[in-house]
Design a protein around this nucleic acid. Structure first.
Lengths: 253, 253
DNA sequence: GCACGTCGTTCGACAATGTCGAACGCCCGG
DNA sequence: CCGGGCGTTCGACATTGTCGAACGACGTGC
């Protein structure tokens, strides 16, 4: 099919028009400039609006370039992400009673961009801006499972042993990741620090692309039930927070 | 059709993936991440490459975000445009023997971002960063003709009279613009300064969107033949330069 | 050096999919 | 109150994108 895809060409033209004209444009203007019927253009801008690449003023109904364009060009940077997720992260710490971490991929490791202390007043060390292994933490495994293109291939990881429970073989790690994908949530049962476990869910931007992991951490016996499964109440709170942050990052209102 | 357009959604997802992964990606990686057949993804990236939103390394054939993404998000700013067009503008002045201007839309006027003196050594005043009327200069009319969304509607212009030949009615201006569109080149026969004429062609970015006008200026009798038509040799040089700059700004390849 | 795997790419048939005429409700100016 | 503009929805049609199959090139491990 050596030919360009029509609708994508047209969508690009719409974006260029909106960016080039320094002011919000009406649908009819776009349609006239592109020499296309209004319903056709409307379908395109509706899609772009859902993707967050175009905004529509709710009162004038004029269209202008959306915030997603910038993030398309530059990706999400860590500070951006942190400031947007902070409110939910704090609330999650309060409701779950756990420490909360926000991790993004950084080469062969996961970098923690945010850390909320567990709200019980116990002594804790701030872990912001530290790096942790991908294969031994809930947030690391979460990124491996849901953001495969932003993380190294499994066979390129050094599966260093941190505790007795650390996973050190590729195949075992793969089955864990498959389970995490199925469940929508990755876990760590004391694999990095003995006795300290965690659970993490992906944060996704507009297109469903995972860009970060939101995790909670605490004593293993507090996070996990007898069967080794994470406690449903916590998983629910975690996934709910993840969904909300994703919805906020993601374009779709 | 209250549903998103599939191919545009997918294209956006591709762009996000390429932007999110900090490294060039292989086609197969994209296909795997999107869970789509490789030919399907190939069609999408081919289109995006033509649009300049994606680049493909010719040796590794890996895909990465293209330069057009940035210009999508920010449009072309005047300094950018100037630096990119300068080489050709200087050469055009040399070969044509005329002064060369580069104009961009600025509200109800055309703003001159670059000015090359005519190479005959005659005394001239630098016009960079001055504004001139849209309706009375070749570059202004060029923008009106080819960049209608970035310029005001004709009826919102004040058609002020500068010389005896200035066009001061909307209908006359419209027929001139139609002629310019047909010819691909707008002209000015001493309508702003008596005896000084000009000709201008649009500069287009990736999608064919006109963002600036490239013009030459000189004595009317030098630029125009007896019939009032611009001299073919000059028009040819001008359009050739415009094509080359557009190709450089433009995405393709 | 052969066979194999994987890559990016092309071809082509099918049907899913986007396109666009017609029509709706809405707001504004006459 | 009407006429004309807007953004938006509906729906039938056929255009158009999708994807299985296949090709040539490249690199690898028997």
């Amino acid at each position: 099919m050596p030919g360009a895809i029509q609708s994508i060409e047209r969508a690009a033209a719409v974006l260029r028009l909106l960016g080039g004209a320094g002011r919000p444009l009406a649908l009819a203007e776009l349609a006239a400039a592109l020499d296309l019927p209004r319903p056709t253009v409307h379908g395109i801008v509706r899609t772009l609006r859902v993707e967050g690449l175009v905004e529509q003023d709710s009162s004038t109904s004029l269209y202008s370039p959306g915030p997603g364009l910038r993030s398309l060009a530059e990706g999400w940077d860590r500070h951006d992400l942190r400031s947007r997720a902070m409110n939910w992260a704090d609330a999650l710490a309060g409701s779950s009673g756990c420490a909360v971490y926000l991790g993004v991929p950084a080469g062969r490791a996961v970098s923690l961009v945010h850390h909320v202390f567990r709200p019980d007043g116990s002594p804790q060390r701030l872990r912001t801006n530290t790096e942790q292994p991908l294969h031994a933490t809930a947030w690391g495994k979460c990124l491996l499972a849901f953001a495969p293109v932003a993380t190294p291939a499994l066979r390129d990881l050094e599966l260093h042993r941190y505790t007795r429970r650390t996973t050190t073989t590729v195949t075992a790690l793969e089955t864990q990741l498959a389970g995490a994908r199925r469940r929508g949530c990755a876990t760590d049962v004391g694999e990095f620090e003995a006795g300290i476990g965690g659970a993490a869910v992906p944060l996704r931007t507009g297109g469903g692309l995972a860009v970060a992991a939101l995790g909670i951490a605490g004593p293993v016996e507090e996070l996990f039930g007898a069967g080794g499964e994470p406690r449903p109440r916590l998983v629910e709170q975690l996934t709910a927070a993840g969904r909300e942050i994703s919805a906020f990052l993601g374009a779709a209102r």
